[in-house]
Amino acid sequence: MENKTFPATLDSLDDLRDLVREKALLAHLDKKKTYNLMLALDEIATNIILYGYEQAGKEGVLDVITDLSDRQLTIVVEDDAAPFDPLQRDLPDEDDFSKPLEERPIGGMGIFLTINGVDEFRYEYTHNRNRNIFIMNVPATEA
């Protein structure tokens, strides 16, 4: 298990994506899975930074905990912003996505991409912290 702390500002997104790339490489995730995981983290971190902290006029950090087992790569993003469960948000569906651009709802795309990009996404609120949990199954290594 490893813990890294990032300031909750948009400048951190770059470093956060680098961290994901590094862990995905260790977990032998393929290019597509790596990209999808990176995108998922970027989307959720963006929401936390913009809405949890900036819009609320708060400063803070994101703690990123990574854990790699034989089977799974787990990345947890913890923050001290107000409780926000991304899974409770109304997500756009096929219908919305087939509408012409000018009629589309503009929100929810990031969370949609997050949930669709990882093998498992969970949210919990514990010890006064939001915990967004991203899990990718690790490909079986040949013996």
């Binding site: 994506r17 970027d42 989307e43 963006t46 012409p100 651009l101 000018e102 589309r104 795309m109 990031g110």
Partner: peptide, 20 residues
């Protein structure tokens, strides 16, 4: 090499701003 939903929203914004 990377585009997040923030980038996609700018495309939608372009269409809405400039016209259908």
């Amino acid at each position: 090499t990377f585009i997040s939903s923030a980038g996609l929203r700018v495309l939608i914004f372009a269409k809405q701003k400039i016209g259908t």
